[in-house]
């Protein structure tokens, strides 16, 4: 095996490990919502991605889409039966009042970007 092949192999292995670490071993940062409302910025994903809210309280989630890509134009909170179109640069409020604890994932219309509402 020539030296260039060995280098390619080593870099590829590093690349694969890095990809795995970068995308799949990310630590989940949970934003605990203490007030009645939380803003989520939609720009190449959801920021914050994971929010935690208390059970039985009405919480307003304000989605603000800054990303012009059509992928993020809809947000789906299937646990609350909500599918909402997000106009660009306009705050859209969604009120939820979860009665059960647990994880309620939300995603874009095509299910490519994900976030989570943790009800505690």
């Amino acid at each position: 095996m020539t030296i260039d092949k060995i280098i390619v192999l080593i870099f590829s292995a590093i690349g694969i490990v890095f990809t795995y670490w970068f995308f799949l071993m990310k630590k989940e940062k949970v934003v605990v919502v203490t007030s009645d409302a939380v803003d989520i910025v939609v720009d190449g994903g959801y920021q914050p991605e994971i929010i935690s809210i208390p059970k039985g309280r009405t919480t307003t989630i304000n989605f603000l889409r800054k990303d012009p890509s059509g992928c993020l134009e809809e947000v789906v909170l299937s646990g609350f039966k909500i599918r909402k179109y997000l106009p660009l640069n306009q705050k859209i409020s969604i009120e939820i009042n979860p009665q059960k604890t647990g994880e309620y994932p939300f995603s874009c219309g095509m299910n490519m970007f994900h976030g989570k509402v943790m009800v505690i």
Binding site: G44, G45, Q47, D67, P68, H114
Partner: peptide, 12 residues
């Protein structure tokens, strides 16, 4: 435009 912020969030 979609990739750069996604990478910031470590999603793809």
């Amino acid at each position: 435009r979609a990739t750069i912020p996604a990478l910031k969030h470590r999603t793809a």
